[in-house]
Amino acid sequence: MSATLDILDRLIAYDTVSETSNLDLVAYIETFLKVRGFEVHRIEDPVGEKAGLYAQKGPKGDGILLSAHTDVVPVEGQNWTRDPFRLTRDGDRFYGRGTTDMKGYVASVLAMADRAVDVALREPIKIALSYDEEIGCVGLQRMLERLVPMLGQPKACFVGEPTEMQVAIGHKGKAALRAVCHGQSGHSALAPKFVNALHLANDFLSELRALQDFYASNGNRDLAYSVPYSTFHVGMMSGGRALNIIPDTAELTFEYRHLVSDLGKDILARIQEAAGKVSARYQSLCSGASVEVEQYNAYPGLDVAETDGIVPYAQKLSQSAATTKVAFGTEAGFFSALGIPTVVCGPGSMEGQGHKADEYIEQAQLNACDVMMDRILQDLSR
C-alpha cells in the first residue's frame, strides 16, 4: 500500500487534463517500467504532444492485459477546497484529480510491476496506457494500429475504470454527431419569404426526440442499466448572427448511446433518414435547404455474457461475487472487439467521485485493487 500511495502521489502531481500534454507523466512511467525489466514502447500521437505506452514483461505468451488511460477531466469551474494536483489525505480518503478516474488504478498496476521484479513469470504481464480517453476514447483509437501487433492474444483484459472493484460486464456504445442545417439569409422584416435554418434545426431536434421515443418503446432493453434502452441527447444548438438577419445556417451537436444489441449503423441510418425528411420538407421553398449529418467520433459498447469464462476468472481475482453494467463508456469495447476476453474492474466509485470537485479514493478501494494485482501476479507466476 505504501508503494501504491508513493506512486499515486507522483501521478497526481502531473496535470494531464486532456487538453494538455501528458509527456512528462509518460516519461516517468516509461523509466519506472524499464528500470524494472519491462520492454516498453511509446506510441506518440500524430503531432507528438501526447503519447500512450505499451509495456510487457515475462516470456512470450497470452498473459493478462491491464489497461488504463492517463488523462483526467478539467478542474476549472469546480469548487475545489484543496490543490487538485497534489495528493492529500484526510482519514481513509486520498484527494486529488484522477485519484478515482483513474490514476489510483494506474498506481496499483505500477506497484505490482515493482513487486514483479523478483518474480519468475510463466506468462507475461501486459500494460496498455492511453491518452485522450476523456474526450471520447480518441487516443486508443489512434494507438490501435501500432498496439494490436504487440498485444498478441491475452487470456484476459482488465480495464481499470472505477467500479468499486465489482466486475463490470457491459456498457453502452456512443457516437458523437454534428448536424449542419442550411437555410436562407434575408431581412427579418420579410421572414416568411425565407427559410430560417433554425426552423430546420428545431424540426430535426423534434425528429431526434421522436427517435428517442421509438427506442424507449420499441428498441431493445437491458434492465441491468438504470436507463435500459438506447438514448439520444442534444448537447448544443446554435445559429444566427443578429436579430434582424434570418439565419442561413444552424448547428446541433448531439450523441446517441446505444445498447450493443441496437446496432450503431442502424441508428445512424435512422438519423440520416430523419435528416432527409426534414430537408425535403423545406426544399419546395428553397432548393438549397438541407440537414447534413456528420458522425465525427464513436466507440463500441461492451456486452459480456454471464456465462463467459472471463466472468468467474475476474470474480476470482477481484474477490467480488457481483457483476454490474456501468453507465459510462470505456475502452473495453475496443479490446473485446479484438477477441480479447475483457471486463471493467477498478477501484473507486464513478458515480460518487468521478469528474467531481474534491475527487478522492478510499484506502479500502486501493487495498482491494492491490490485492487483486497480487492475485494476478501469482496467477502469472505459478
Rank of each mutant, 00 (worst) to 15 (best):
E145T: 14
R146N: 15
R146H: 14
R146C: 10
L147V: 02
L147C: 02
V148Q: 15
V148E: 15
P149M: 04
P149K: 09
P149F: 06
M150Q: 08
M150A: 09
L151F: 01
G152L: 11
G152T: 13
G152V: 09
Q153G: 06
Q153M: 14
P154D: 02
P154Q: 05
P154L: 05
A156W: 01
A156R: 02
A156Q: 02
C157V: 11
C157Y: 03
C157T: 09
F158Q: 02
V159T: 08
V159I: 14
G160P: 08
G160W: 09
G160I: 11
G160Q: 08
G160F: 10
E161P: 11
E161V: 12
P162V: 05
E164L: 13
M165A: 04
M165H: 03
Q166P: 01
Q166M: 15
Q166E: 15
A168S: 08
I169F: 05
I169C: 04
I169T: 10
G170C: 07
G170D: 09
G170N: 06
G170I: 05
G170W: 09
G170L: 10
H171S: 07
H171M: 07
K172R: 11
K172D: 00
K172H: 01
G173M: 01
G173P: 00
G173Q: 00
G173K: 01
A175D: 13
A175K: 04
A175L: 08
L177M: 12
L177R: 09
L177P: 01
R178Y: 10
V180R: 10
V180D: 14
C181A: 11
C181S: 09
C181P: 03
H182E: 13
H182A: 12
G183R: 02
G183D: 08
Q184K: 00
Q184Y: 03
Q184F: 05
S185C: 09
G186C: 00
G186K: 00
H187D: 06
H187A: 04
S188N: 10
S188E: 12
A191N: 12
A191H: 14
A191C: 12
A191V: 15
P192T: 07
P192S: 07
P192R: 09
K193C: 14
F194I: 01
F194T: 00
F194P: 00
F194H: 02
V195T: 04
N196T: 03
N196P: 00
N196C: 01
A197Y: 02
A197F: 01
A197K: 07
L198G: 06
H199M: 13
L200Y: 02
L200D: 00
N202S: 15
D203M: 07
D203E: 13
D203R: 12
D203V: 08
F204H: 04
F204Q: 03
F204S: 04
L205D: 14
E207K: 10
L208F: 04
R209K: 13
A210Q: 13
L211Q: 05
Q212I: 03
F214R: 14
Y215V: 11
Y215Q: 09
Y215H: 10
A216I: 13
A216F: 14
A216W: 14
S217Y: 06
S217Q: 15
G219P: 00
N220L: 05
N220G: 14
R221I: 10
R221W: 08
R221P: 03
R221C: 08
D222P: 07
D222Y: 10
L223G: 12
L223Q: 15
